[in-house]
């Protein structure tokens, strides 16, 4: 079995853009672990990263835990389409391509779907469970509204997994040592397209609200963005036991708890 794993190496949220503060997301780690178990003995797992020199550190780690090949496509600041395009030639021919559901910088999650389109493969994205024992592979995907979907996935397919799906094994000491000096295969990648992007700090957009059904007070409240919260009393000071009882009583009154609890 041949599996390609996509790892995105990113500087940690809010930190300096410095290799020290970088890594891959738990989802990407879960993708590699899933790949290693799926491939089993004799399988081939290739880990590919589209990134700058710093991402070699991630690929070394992938080597140490047991990836058969690692490749870095040299490139920075690429959009999801270009990333997928750069990965596709490497991933072509794989039974599965495994991605994280999100990278450490929480991009847009578009790379895996693009990859599936590029490869003409099936896609099953945002997985919360992978049953490795079944053929075809059976997976559980997260839907909205708290629902889950169970899918049977043919090959070839692109899968993206959430971080909780698996925990990446620890590399042995000898493997870590030899990976630390291994040379990483690098191939040239596309140059980023020029974009004019204006970057500002995040400001939430003013939300449109249905006209208030109540009177002036409700309207004022809406304008002040205290939402639908009804007027409230002053804070009450209570001992913890009283406080707990008060919360339970209130939840019961609001009908979040059945009337007959505790």
């Amino acid at each position: 079995m041949r599996i390609t794993v996509c790892w995105k190496w990113v500087a940690v949220d809010g930190a300096d853009p410095d290799d020290r503060w970088a890594g891959v997301s738990p989802a990407d780690e879960a993708a590699l672990e899933t790949a290693l178990t799926l491939a089993g003995n004799g399988g081939e797992v290739t880990v590919v990263t589209v990134g700058a020199t710093g991402s070699d550190a991630g690929l070394r780690r992938a080597t140490a835990v047991g990836a058969t090949h690692v490749i870095r496509v040299d490139g920075e600041g690429l959009g999801a389409r270009d990333v997928a395009r750069a990965i596709a030639p490497i991933a072509r021919g794989s039974d599965y391509v495994l991605c994280g559901d999100y990278s450490l910088d929480r991009g847009t999650g578009a790379v895996p779907a693009y990859l599936a389109a590029e490869l003409g493969a099936a896609q099953a994205l945002g997985l919360v469970g992978v049953d490795r024992t079944r053929v075809p592979l059976r997976v559980v995907r997260r839907l909205d509204g708290g629902r889950r979907e169970i899918l049977d996935v043919p090959t070839p397919a692109v899968l993206s997994v959430e971080g909780a799906v698996a925990r990446l094994r620890r590399a042995g000491l000898a493997e870590t040592l030899s990976a630390s000096t291994a040379t990483i295969e690098v191939v040239a990648g596309p140059r980023p397209a020029e974009h004019d992007v204006v970057v500002t700090p995040y400001r939430p957009r003013a939300r449109m609200l249905p006209p208030p059904s109540g009177g002036t007070l409700a309207r004022v409240r809406d304008i002040l963005d205290i939402g639908a919260a009804p007027a409230h009393g002053d804070a009450v000071t209570l001992d913890p036991p009283e406080a707990a009882q008060r919360i339970i009583d209130q939840l019961r009154e609001w009908r979040y708890l059945p009337r007959d609890t505790a």
Partner: peptide, 9 residues
């Protein structure tokens, strides 16, 4: 000894 598999040095 280290916390890595086969981690004696």
């Amino acid at each position: 000894t280290t916390d890595r598999p086969e981690g004696d040095l």
